[in-house]
Design a protein around this nucleic acid. Sequence first.
DNA 1: TGTACATCAGTGAACGCGCGTTCACTGATGTAC
DNA 2: TGTACATCAGTGAACGCGCGTTCACTGATGTAC
Lengths: 230, 230
Amino acid sequence: MPRVRDVQLYDEMLEAIKTLARAQMSQEGTSSLSLRGIARDLGVTAPALYRYFPSRDDLITALIVDGFTALAHTLEAADANHDCADYRGRFADICRAYRRFALERSVDFQLIYGNPIPGYVAPKEVTVPTVIQVFTVFSIVFIEAFNAGKLKPLPQDRLQPTVVAGLEQIITRNQVPTDVPVMYGVFAAWTKIHGVVMLELFHHLEQTVGDTALFFENELALLIDQLGFL
Amino acid sequence: MPRVRDVQLYDEMLEAIKTLARAQMSQEGTSSLSLRGIARDLGVTAPALYRYFPSRDDLITALIVDGFTALAHTLEAADANHDCADYRGRFADICRAYRRFALERSVDFQLIYGNPIPGYVAPKEVTVPTVIQVFTVFSIVFIEAFNAGKLKPLPQDRLQPTVVAGLEQIITRNQVPTDVPVMYGVFAAWTKIHGVVMLELFHHLEQTVGDTALFFENELALLIDQLGFL
DNA sequence: TGTACATCAGTGAACGCGCGTTCACTGATGTAC
DNA sequence: TGTACATCAGTGAACGCGCGTTCACTGATGTAC
């Protein structure tokens, strides 16, 4: 951040740029982000943007980080709406929020989970921590449910040893206070929900199952049972 | 197709263009397809391509159709490798082929299931039939297994009435010779596999579960039981 | 077998547009005396 | 309170590059007589 006269104005400009960037992406696709286009929309010349972002890639990075954070907050908010002990309800609402986010803020969703942007490489040290945020929200419900005796996860002998080893690594690396089978449930859930949402988002389901919202609810209900939520 | 002097040469040129297009997309992303770039690679001027494709969009359409067809054939081939009565094995291999296709031919996979290409609109009358092809391969195993008494699908009362209605529509529209619960299984399977594959493809799993191949196998084994394959 | 001619396949120039980034610059702003 | 001056915020021109598509054209090819 260069020296700035008015911090508030500066921050407003930052936000304005990112908002217009998202608008542009939602019209033209995530890969068509153009600094000149943003400058045009903003009524300013293109070089002016370089005071706010050193390059186009830095703008993209900021948008990706924002996207992950927004998703994580959305999921957290959905979780907070609930009686703590209603684990089935909490989990369901988190999943619903995941879907709603994907459909309503599809730019952000495509940006974080869709095709990579050509020529752009995400700086891992920046994006990885934010990826974890999302994943953490899911974990918390599982862990709390399990500790309350309200989750009966898959027995560990149904998991491949290498998978177990991988999960153990995450558990220790991120200091997640739980066991492998519980952790496995998080991934089983996430991958399922993600699949349904992705296919719905890109309109591969509506031609086939028809009412995608109800299909989602149906799959969600079955999933909750399968995962062992009591 | 314009009048052509040598049909074989013409077809070879068509293939060459599409091959270079795929190569370009795999380097620069599906949205960065450039006719001029292809012409350059081909050692020819850009207008020459207009003898083969009336526009960039027509080339994209051809690539998408090819992608769906290739995926469908890959799945069919995986299915053909098997003792007909080994339904669990057949289903597992189809899913493995789906994953392998996504990872090995990721351009095609991103093209058909990933972010839409900005400014491009798929002509539905062309692409929809090819979408069905893929879906059909999955259906066949389910139907055959069910008819052989080797699949115990979810009871219909666990499905939402509207979802049932939607599935009935597909069944009659495409003249699929089976019942709603069997059809539902196809979607339950597809969405699950798709979710795992998508997340692996874009490297969201490797940071977390570690060995993604084994994670896939693990999820697949569980899925086969859940779906009711005997 | 030899020649005239239609046509196919690809060229080269042009149109009008886009892009990210660098650079020297100007005018407005706030501050220090 | 008034003026000089540093610096911030944004300008405008330029660099060197990209793109899809149209158009009149040329040279090679195969065919018909």
